[in-house]
Design a protein around this nucleic acid. Structure first.
Lengths: 245, 245
DNA sequence: CGTGCCATTGAGTTCTTTCAAAGATGGTGG
DNA sequence: CCACCATCTTTGAAAGAACTCAATGGCACG
């Protein structure tokens, strides 16, 4: 529908908030000019730091997480290509959580100065960044609903549906893939890894998902969406969220 | 510490993001000029609507919530005096959840046009609004941690500590009060109301909380914070969050 | 061919829910 | 002032969900 403006994932992501001018797109191209690579399971920022850069995901998967005094970990957000990891630091200062990679990634550092420039001097980009923050918030709300009020199997299925829809919004691909260990999955869902394993194999038995090399694929989107009671409206992606694949 | 600028709760709340100019304060006074009252348990906005106004809480308590197909309800945010309920609508459009009062409230309607004006023409207010959105997000993350990785009693205690700190940030009062039924409490915590009752009476037995007329008071802030492992940094309130009362 | 990480399975325990019933409380109208 | 009603709280018992602990199996990598 909204044919993506170019090969810039950031632009494609922000495009979901509304059209941007060619000038905006040029500015966004500058922003992602100098990417770097990072292995899986590396921290980008740790709780308590006050970094000078913000990170953008070009490829791979990144997460926000908190570790409790008792050693338990909670993953509180998943960042996919096109997502900005930590706009916070530009405005909030000290990090109240950590950010780390889940897979090998290609990333870009964006300086605080650049963020300020985007926010102060590019109204359409500013609005799009605000939009993306509000969508992040909507996702958090849905995770909360998920965790508090859905059975673990529906909750897991719901997560898969969400990631599928979000990936589709920035990059058409054939079937969503989640390269996560069961422990990571458990930390997202707020359950133990053993239980995650049982729940996942339950979904497999129902043929709602298939797994290869610890990657999840959804063979029948419609059916798993029904099972998870997934309604994509909270992602605010327009039509993009509804497409089967 | 940061002595609040005036009697305007919105200004007091945004002041936490950093100082505002007298001009900003005047503008904010205009914004809250025309309040109205609403009874407890009334909806401000319902899921799916596309309202033309945003709401600000002057007094009382408001919540965001979602209702699932199976009838279960999840409360995904608590709005206290000074909080803007639904900045979303000005940017995201269609509501992906409902908003309703929990107590009798005094509120203000803010038009979309006013929001646009604030965002486009008042840089310091814009930044403060962005700040408040990011803090809301931080609170959501903490709720998620709470729900996924803490025992129900710690989780409940943590909620009490948070509300206490947030109330202190806009309005010094002696001990936090939560005028909630146990069912509402349960919908916040993602547990059943029966369980909420048992957990609450457990906290009472430990003398971490006292209850009068379904209002919760915290007799010993330090002790309950320790019990809940409450760290207020995620509220980004500076010193305000740490004060005992 | 170890070694280490991860997935899988089983058994028992703990936490949470559901269903049901019995107290409390406050408001209303007779 | 009291009977009645609705709403909320409290308690018990049994079922269900999820956790922990522990052991086994698979696979990749050096």
């Amino acid at each position: 529908m909204t044919h993506t403006p170019n090969e810039n994932v950031l632009a494609r992501k922000l495009w979901n908030a509304g059209p941007l001018d060619p000038e905006d797109l040029r500015r966004l191209d500058q922003v992602i000019a100098d990417p770097f690579e990072l292995d899986a399971r590396e921290d980008l920022i740790q709780h308590g730091e006050d970094p000078q850069n913000v990170h953008l995901v070009l490829s791979g998967m990144v997460c926000r997480y908190k570790v409790l005094p008792n050693g338990k970990r909670a993953i509180v957000a998943l960042m996919l290509p096109g997502d900005i990891c930590d706009l916070h630091v530009a405005i909030l200062g000290r990090m109240d959580h950590s950010i780390g990679t889940l897979t090998d990634c290609r990333l870009v550092k964006i300086s605080r100065r650049t963020i300020d420039d985007l926010l102060d001097n590019h109204p359409r980009i500013r609005r799009a960044l605000f939009w993306s923050t509000l969508v992040d918030e909507a996702i958090l709300r849905e995770w909360l609903v998920n965790m508090g009020r859905r059975r673990a199997d529906q909750q897991m299925a719901h997560l898969f549906c969400e990631v599928h829809a979000r990936l589709n919004a920035v990059d058409r691909m054939h079937g969503a893939l989640l390269p996560l260990t069961q422990e990571e999955l458990a930390d997202i869902l707020g359950i133990s890894s053993v239980h995650a394993q049982r729940v996942l194999s339950g979904l497999r038995k129902k043929e709602l998902v298939t797994v290869q090399d610890s990657r999840v694929a959804l063979p029948d989107i419609r059916r798993i969406r029904e099972f998870a009671q997934f309604e994509g409206d909270y992602l605010h992606l327009g039509e993009a969220a509804d497409s089967g694949d």
